[in-house]
Design a protein around this nucleic acid. Structure first.
Length: 449
RNA sequence: GUAGUCAUAGCUCAGUUGGUUAGAGCAUCGGUUUGUGGUACCGAGGGUCGUGGGUUCGAGCCCCAUUGAUUACCCCA
C-alpha cells in the first residue's frame, strides 16, 4: 500500500487551524452582513465556455479542467486531432478560478430576479493550476464582497469602512489601506508617451515594493521607454497621506487631462464621504493591481508591522458583466486573502485563546452505569450552551483526564460508584487542579466558563 | 515554462574520509499508581534509509536516472 498523500498545492486544515480560520471567516462575514451584503455560493465547477478567455492566455492555462464522464474517448478518432485541439472534446467543465467571473455569470443569468444595486459576499475556495510555492496554493480561499449596478462612490467609501471594522475586530492595528485610480495611471502613462504599453507598465510598477525603484527603472527601460518618460512616471509614484492637499498636488502635475480630472474627482468624492483624515489610508501612485478589468478606484491593504504582501485588494470595474453580454453595469468589490491574514495573525499572536477550546466540560464515567448517569446531565448543560462531552468508554481515569488535558478542557466531572450512589459528581478544575464533591444538580453553579 | 535545494521511524532531525547489528527527541502503547491529567521514572512496538540502476570487497553516505516535496523567477492571490 502506498503512503497517502494529497495533491500538490492543497492542504488539510486540522481542527486547531480550522478554529482559527473560522474565526477570521466569521469576523469578515459578520462585517459584510452589517453592511447589507448577502451570501452567494456558486458551484465548484463551471462550464469551460464560462471560464476561458476571461483571464488572459496565461490564466486559461492555469484553469483546472475536468474530464467528461463516461467513455468520452469512444467516439473520438484520436489521430484526427492534435493534443491541444482535443481538449474541447474531452473536457467541458473546469474548476472555478476566482469568484468574480462566477458572480458575473450569476448576475447575467438572474438579472430579472436581482434587486439592484446587488450586494453580495462569497467565501469559497478557488483553484489554479499554478506551480505552488510559499503562501501560494493550487486551492485557496477568496472572501469577496461586491456591489453591482451602481457607480456611486459611496461603495468605495463603504469598503474603506469595512476594512476599518474587520481589522479592528481582528485586532490588526498596523496596516495601510492604499488607494489609487486606474484612470490616474492611464493619465500618467499617457503623459509619459507610453500608452501602448499600459498593461505592461502597470505590471511593472506594481512590483515597486518588491524589486525597488532601480528594478522598476530597469524593466521600464527594457520595454523601450526613454529615461525622461520614466522620470515622468516616477514623479507620480509617490505614496502620500490621502487628503485634500495630496489631491491638489496631483492635480497640479496634470494639465487638462480629462482622465486625470475624472480620477481626481472620484478620489475627492470618496474623501468627502470618509472624512478628510481617514485612518490608515494612503494615496499610492504605484498601486496598479494586475487584473486588467479594473477601471476606477483600486485598493490594496498591506500590514506594516511585518514585511508581507497585500492581505486584501479590490477596485471598481465598469463592465464586468459585459463579457456575458450584459452592458452598463458598474461594480466594485474587494477580496480578503485569508491565508495571508492567517499567517499575519499567527505571527502577531492575535488569535483569541478560546478559539482552540472545543469543549468546556468532560464527563468521566468510571463504569457503564456512569455513562447513562451522565447522559441527561450532559444534555442539560448543552441546552445551556456549555460545550459538553462524555468520554465514551469507562476507561481508566488517567486516560480520560489525559484526553481532557490534551483537548484543553477546563472541567472534568468524574462519576464513579460513590457519586452515582449519592447523586453527586466529582467536579475538577483541570487548570488549577482543585476538585469538589457536589450535588449533580448544582454543576451550573460551580462552573464559570 | 526556467533555476536551485532536499528526501533516513507516525513527526522533527542526527548519522564522522564509504566499514560490523541504523540513532535521538517528540508522538503512540504498556507499567511504576485497579479513583486523578498536564511535570518524574521504567519499558515496548515502529525503518528494504523515496524508487531503479551503477561504482566498490563493502553504499544511508559516491555517480546516473526517476519520482515526490520545497524555494526563487515568470505570472498571480
Amino acid at each position: 500500500m502506498s503512503k497517502p498523500s494529497i495533491p500538490k498545492g492543497t492542504r488539510d486544515f486540522s481542527p486547531n487551524i480550522m478554529a482559527k480560520r473560522k474565526f477570521i471567516l466569521s469576523t469578515i462575514e459578520n462585517v459584510y452582513q452589517t453592511f447589507g451584503f448577502m451570501p452567494l455560493e456558486t458551484p465548484a465547477m463551471e462550464n469551460l465556455t464560462t471560464l476561458t478567455g476571461k483571464y488572459g492566455n496565461e490564466g486559461d492555462q492555469l484553469l483546472f479542467k475536468i474530464l467528461n464522464s463516461g467513455d468520452f474517448l469512444n467516439d473520438i478518432d484520436l489521430s484526427q486531432y492534435d493534443s491541444k485541439k482535443l481538449t474541447p472534446y474531452i473536457s467541458e467543465k473546469g474548476l472555478r478560478y476566482d469568484l468574480t467571473v462566477p458572480l458575473a455569470r450569476f448576475v447575467v443569468m438572474n438579472q430579472h430576479l436581482i434587486n439592484f444595486p446587488f450586494k453580495r459576499y462569497q467565501m469559497q475556495p478557488v483553484w489554479r493550476a499554478d506551480r505552488p510555492q510559499k503562501n501560494r496554493y493550487r486551492e485557496f480561499w477568496q472572501c469577496d464582497a461586491d456591489v453591482l449596478g451602481t457607480s456611486s462612490l459611496l461603495c468605495e467609501a463603504d469598503f474603506i469602512a469595512i476594512y476599518h471594522q474587520v481589522f479592528s475586530k481582528l485586532q490588526i492595528n498596523e496596516y495601510e489601506i492604499r488607494i489609487n485610480h486606474r484612470k490616474l495611471l492611464e493619465a500618467t502613462i499617457e503623459k509619459a508617451n507610453a500608452s501602448q504599453y499600459f498593461k505592461e507598465i502597470t505590471v511593472i510598477i506594481d512590483k515597486l515594493d518588491k524589486i525597488g525603484p532601480d528594478g522598476v527603472r530597469n524593466e521600464l527601460s527594457q520595454l523601450g521607454i526613454f529615461d525622461t518618460d520614466i522620470n515622468t512616471i516616477f514623479s507620480l509614484l509617490n505614496k502620500k497621506v490621502f487628503n485634500q492637499q495630496t489631491i491638489q498636488d496631483i492635480e497640479k502635475s496634470f494639465q487638462n487631462s480629462e482622465l486625470a480630472n475624472q480620477a481626481l474627482a472620484d478620489l475627492n468624492n470618496i474623501l468627502s464621504l470618509v472624512g478628510d483624515k481617514p485612518q490608515n489610508v494612503f494615496f499610492d501612485g504605484s498601486l496598479a493591481r494586475g487584473l486588467d478589468y479594473y477601471t476606477g478606484c483600486i485598493f490594496e491593504v498591506v500590514p506594516t508591522s511585518i514585511k508581507m504582501g497585500s492581505i486584501s485588494g479590490g477596485g471598481r470595474y465598469d463592465n464586468l458583466t459585459g463579457m456575458f453580454g450584459l452592458n452598463g453595469i458598474s461594480g466594485v468589490g474587494i477580496s480578503f486573502g485569508i491565508d495571508r491574514l492567517y499567517d499575519l495573525m499567527e505571527e502577531l499572536q492575535l488569535f483569541p485563546e478560546q478559539q482552540t477550546h472545543f469543549t468546556d466540560l468532560l464527563f468521566c464515567p468510571l463504569d457503564e452505569a456512569g455513562i447513562s448517569y451522565c447522559m441527561p446531565l450532559a444534555n442539560d448543560l448543552r441546552k445551556q450552551g456549555i460545550k459538553t462531552e462524555i468520554y465514551p468508554q469507562a476507561s481508566k481515569i488517567k486516560k480520560q483526564l489525559d484526553y481532557a488535558n490534551q483537548k484543553q478542557i477546563k472541567w472534568a466531572a468524574i462519576v464513579g460508584e460513590n457519586e452515582l450512589k449519592n447523586n453527586q459528581i466529582m467536579l475538577k478544575n483541570l487548570l488549577v487542579g482543585e476538585q469538589a464533591l457536589i450535588n449533580k444538580m448544582d454543576i451550573l453553579n460551580f462552573i464559570n466558563i
